[in-house]
Each structure stands twice: as C-alpha cells, then as structure tokens.
C-alpha cells in the first residue's frame, strides 16, 4: 500500500446560494520517499486537496489513507496525534510573529508536551540543518522571505514527520531564493526519507525537484505519473499548456513573431532525449530537404537530471514536404507530436 492513498475524494463547499465542487473524484497514490508535485492554475482545487491530506479540510466523500490508516475513521484525538507525522509549510510562512526563531521551531514540540529546554536544544539542531543557527534570537519580522521559509521548514521538521506538505511554499519568493529552498527540500527528502507533497502553479518547481506530478484542473486530476514521462508525452491539453507556459517562464527562445505563427499550416513538437541533442538534426534536415522550417520555440531543460530538449516547429504548407520532414525527424529517433492552437 502506498504511503498516502486518496480514494474517490470529493469536496463540496456549500454557501448560502451556491455550491462549489472544489474536488471531484480524486484518486492519488503517493509512495514513501516520493517528491510528489500537484500542479494547477489557481482555483484548480490543489490547496483544498492538500488540506484533505491532513484533514484540515474534511472531504465530503471519499477516503484518505496515510500509512495504512484511514484519517476519516479517526477520533479527534487520534487525528491531532496523526498530524505530528504530517508537517506542513505555507506560502506566507505562517510563523508566530511575537516569538523568536528558536521558539517558533520549538513550538510543535511544546504542543506535544516536550520540555522547553529540550525543545530549544532540538530547535537549535534543526536551525543548523536549514542554515540559520545565528538567527535563533531574531524575530520573524527581521528575516527575509527565504529565511522565514527556512524557519518554517525547521519547524516542520521538529516533530520528525514522515510527510511534508508544501502549499505554494515558494510562490512568495524570488527565483534565486526559490531555487535554494527547493534545494533544501530535496536534501531533506534524501537525508531523512521524508515524503514531500508540493502544491504549486509553477512548472519549474515540478521540473526541478519532483519525481511525480499530478496535473489538476477544475477540481479534477487530469493526468498523473512520473515527471519525466509527462514532460515527454503530455497526454492532455492541460499538461501541454502547463509545459508550454514553463518554457515561457524560463527565458525561452521566441523566434517567430505572433503574426508569423498564424501563417504556419502545421506545428509540430519535437522532443530530444539525452543523445539526440548532440546531433544538429534540424540543420541537417533543412540542408537535406532544401526547405526552411520556422522554429517557434526552443528550449532545453534539466528534467530530473536528464537533459530534455524541446522544440516547436512551424512546417511549410506543402503536405508532401511536411511528410518528408516528419519522416526525416522520426528516422533520427525523435518523437513528434502535432501541436494545435496558439503556441
């Protein structure tokens, strides 16, 4: 059995004059040690979903099993104890503003009845892990965003959780700080074997540290699996959109002007694997067919340690020529996929 299993979960919010189906029949399995990303636009239901994983939100239907135990079947007391195993960090850090750093980190331990002195000692060790030993007496208001999130991470680790839920944990941070926080999360995952569930709207976060991803839209999981596979073979429109948006976000190359793009008869997406990026395929192809193609987008990125290249080409209108080009690319062992709509 997976460490976290979500079965037929749905959540409906009912207000006076409206019903919102925030989650619809969600099924999810997260294995011990995974870094599992859940991505979607705002309003997709991902924050609600992550709150169902520790029962901060009670699902309307369905079950959440953690370490073989059904959270829905627990008494209030058992649930409070269970939450010790499921730590959480937040977009806005949610630190106690009136307590200094070391007391913030001690806080979950005090809740569990650990003596203040022991709690402080443990808190100092944890501050060492997140690299903030020298800030133990500072108050959150004196720290930068990245430092606050490090304190929140140290606090989350205090109860020695088996699972860490991250709710848009890097969304309020600049790119460099985001990278360093992600690095820290990855270290924690390998060092302590803590399963990490990451909620985000940034594909770059998924790409940098996640092993698995689920793509959410309008309260449903559209597609889920290994990050590697979803990046190379996105099956759904939602997945493709998110991957394309990622290219935009990361300083990708836009070679064609928008009006040129409209003229293309056909657009194809080519994915390079680790080997094929060395050969100048496109250049060779153009030489061979004697006809230019329009490179609409091109990008290479690091997906889970493997270099993945991706390119979107606009092909000439001539059908025969299109076929010729596609055959040439396929013969080089590359994958082709037709892209529809605006790129």
């Amino acid at each position: 059995m997976a460490q976290i299993e979500v079965r037929h979960l749905s959540k409906t919010f009912t207000s006076k004059d409206a019903q919102v189906n925030a989650l619809k029949d969600i099924n999810l399995e997260i294995e011990q040690g995974d870094i599992y990303g859940i991505i979607g636009m705002s309003g997709a239901g991902k924050s609600t979903l992550v709150r169902c994983l520790n029962y901060l939100e009670k699902p309307t239907h369905g079950e959440v099993w953690v370490d073989g135990r059904d959270l829905g079947g627990m008494t209030e007391k058992e649930l409070l104890r269970q939450r010790k195993d499921i730590a959480m960090i937040f977009q806005h850090f949610n630190l106690l503003m009136q307590k200094n750093v070391v007391d913030n980190v001690s806080f979950p331990l005090l809740i569990q009845g650990v003596k203040k002195k022991e709690a402080r000692k443990k808190a100092r060790e944890l501050l060492g892990i997140v690299g903030l030993e020298e800030k133990e007496l500072a108050y959150p208001a004196q720290l930068s965003g990245g430092q606050k999130q490090r304190v929140a991470i140290a606090r989350a680790l205090a109860s020695e959780p088996r699972i860490l839920l991250c709710d848009e944990a890097t969304s309020a941070l600049d790119p460099q700080t985001t990278a360093s926080i992600l690095e820290l999360l990855k270290d924690i995952n390998t060092q302590f074997g803590i399963t990490i569930v990451i909620i985000t709207h940034q594909m770059s976060v998924i790409r940098k540290i996640c092993s698995h991803v689920a793509i959410m839209s309008q309260g449903e999981i559209k597609e889920s699996g290994l990050v590697n596979e979803i990046f190379s073979h996105p099956k759904t429109r939602e997945a493709r959109e998110l991957i394309l948006k990622d290219i935009d976000g990361e300083g990708a190359v836009h070679l064609a002007k928008p009006q040129d793009r409209l003229m293309e008869a056909k657009k194809i997406r080519i994915v390079f694997s680790e080997n094929s990026s060395f050969e100048p395929v496109i250049a060779n192809m153009v030489l061979k067919t004697g006809r230019p193609v329009n490179i609409l987008k091109a990008d290479t990125k690091n997906v889970g340690g493997i270099a993945k290249g991706e390119m979107i080409l606009g092909l000439p209108e001539d059908r025969k020529l299109q076929q010729e080009i596609e055959d040439y690319i396929r013969a080089r062992g590359l994958e082709i996929e037709e892209v529809t709509g605006d790129v």
Partner: peptide, 29 residues
Amino acid sequence: DAGVIEAARSMGASTFTIVTKVLLVEART
C-alpha cells in the same frame, strides 16, 4: 492571522493550545 492558526492546527494543536499559545500570544499587543 488565520494562517498562523492553520499552521498550529496542522501541527496537531488542540483548541486550548491554539487559544493559549497562539491567539493570546499573537494578539498580545
């Protein structure tokens, strides 16, 4: 801040703990 209360809930804090250790402390001023 509702977020701080949520954080305390996520740590398994009881209502009593949230009142004494979060609400009263954070609202001190």
